[in-house]
Amino acid sequence: MSETAEATVQEVEVEPKEPLFSSKNKRLLTDPLNDDNPITIQVLGICSALAITVQLKPTFVMSVSVLFVMIGGNLIVSWLRNLIPSRVRIIVQLVIVAALVILVDQVLKAFLYDVSKQLSVFVGLIITNCIIMGRLEAFALGNKPWPSFLDAIGNAAGYAWIMLAVAFAREFFGSGKIWGMQVIPKGDDDIWTFTDLNFYNVNGVQYYADNGFMILPPMALITVGIIIWVQRSKNTKLIEEN
């Protein structure tokens, strides 16, 4: 293995008798949820965050797809890590990820046709999701299957919860729905009448109007930005010196 490759591999030394959920292994699961979140901290894979977070349901399917590809990719690469010739390792990883993504795409087309139409090209674009290739190259290539499996779940979950949080905000404020269900009652004239939470009050009539801006791509970026802001203000060790 070349020196540069070695430098990028995080070596986690697993003792032979280490318990399955040692503190080290637990950190593999929990770090990506917060301190080392792939989206808010590493800012990887946010392309899809912009595209498919208009509604919760496609976002959920997308997250599950990423989870599947992530686990599959990490496990396979980890199993093969001593066999993969280092000169072609990136291409090998790419082939493995691409194969898994195509599998997901085919399964969605067969069983969840309407969702697969909504996600359209973005399922295919999981291939280019930096989180996946990043974890394969940085972790699975240098670690045993079990830690790699945990790392995959941790990172996919870290990706998923941010995506779902963004999708929740966008669907709720953008269309007054949660998971496709109308939660803000629809009034006459396409105006959402709303009495308890006073969103707008015009001429004594209280109503909530859909915020159309929320369903446009820029709001995904801004929502992610707000999440990053909140996270860093709570977790001060994340703030860089300069």
Binding site: L83, I84, P85
Partner: peptide
Amino acid sequence: KNTNNYTFLF
């Protein structure tokens, strides 16, 4: 693992 033959085979 660094020979061409191995790479092609893999």
